[in-house]
Write a protein that binds this DNA or RNA. Structure first.
Length: 313
DNA sequence: ATGACTGGATAGTCCAGA
């Protein structure tokens, strides 16, 4: 069984272009309890067919995660690196393009007061993938808020010391700018929008990371989280707090970057939607820059924000 | 309406989420 799976993976890698992956789809999704989300997660995997998935708020121990999903994920070709705890927090990386050098937790990060399951990293398809669930912060100035800022400093230090090809994917619990919340006035005095939080996010850009969805869609209204209450999703009153941050060499390979709003619709959704990025090696320069120059004509047929690109053939 | 919903732990409702 294991050998069959290995052969299948090698075949997939070959189809994708041999030792160097030609295309790779990476997604991140705060599922708000993976146990409750199984009926949404598995069909979504089958529809979107991501190669790497970063999950947050799994809310399960590693044993419970394995008990719940090992068979269904193995059947789909995924290896799993889960890092969870009972009831709260919890992250995981699923990969069908390799899962090497797994590190659970964030070195140098504070706890609250004890270390929490908020980060897991692995190398997948040649890219260092860091899956994060950044502390909420609760209220500005609180102990939890200070914890959030200190945690983000440790994340910056990890990225600064890390390999060249890296993506930080996850629930950052920060809206990068006022364009990323439905009404800036509604968030005055709240977490997620304060200058110290945004500076902590900017520090990640200072060490080379790019917000690939915003760079790909500089003018669009894009949210990734909508409160369950009061029909907020229906009214599209949300925030963009789930980010894919890619180092330069990875950002240059971005062919599509979008929020999968379909996954927020229907019965039993998470309050977050997945964020998806498609990477292309583009060795021949046939894929344009992520952001066209201002004088460039409108790009032909870019995927709508809530639709995937046609899968590569 | 500092609320509305959801998940988890609990065994009452409370905490946390963002």
């Amino acid at each position: 069984m294991h050998d069959d799976l290995e052969r299948w993976r090698r075949g997939l890698a070959l189809w994708r272009g041999g030792s160097r992956l030609v295309r790779m789809r990476i997604a991140t999704w705060n599922v708000n309890s993976v146990k409750q989300r199984v009926p949404r997660l598995l069909p979504w995997l089958d529809e979107r067919r991501p190669d790497v998935v970063c999950l947050q708020e799994t809310k399960l121990t590693d044993d419970a995660f394995s008990e719940l999903l090992h068979e269904e994920l193995t059947r789909r070709g995924y290896e799993v690196a889960a890092y969870g705890e009972p009831a709260w927090n919890g992250v995981a990386i699923l990969s069908r393009v390799g899962l090497d050098a797994v590190v659970r937790g964030l070195e140098g990060a504070p706890g609250f007061p004890h270390p929490e399951a908020r980060a897991v990293a692995a190398t997948c398809g040649g890219v260092r993938v860091i899956c994060v669930y950044v502390p909420n912060g609760r209220s500005p100035g609180s102990a939890h808020y200070e914890y959030k800022l200190a945690w983000l400093e440790a994340l910056r230090d990890l990225v600064a010391a890390g390999p060249v090809e890296v993506v930080v994917c996850g629930d950052m619990n920060i809206a990068p700018s006022d364009e990323d919340v439905f009404d800036p006035a509604a968030f005055v005095g709240q977490t997620h929008v304060t200058p110290p939080e945004r500076r902590a996010l900017a520090a990640l850009h200072d060490v080379g990371l790019h917000d690939v969805v915003r760079e790909h869609w500089p003018e669009r209204r894009i949210f990734s989280y909508w409160d369950y209450r009061a029909g907020m999703f229906h009214k599209d009153l949300g925030m963009r707090i789930d980010l894919i941050l890619a180092s330069g060499p990875v950002a240059e390979r971005v062919r599509a970057a979008w929020v999968d709003r379909q996954a927020r619709k229907g019965k039993g959704p998470s309050d977050h939607a997945p964020v998806i990025v498609d990477l292309d090696a583009a060795p021949d320069g046939d894929v344009g820059p992520v952001v066209p120059p201002p004088s460039a004509p409108a790009p032909p047929r870019r995927a709508p924000i809530d639709q995937p690109l046609v899968p590569p053939t």
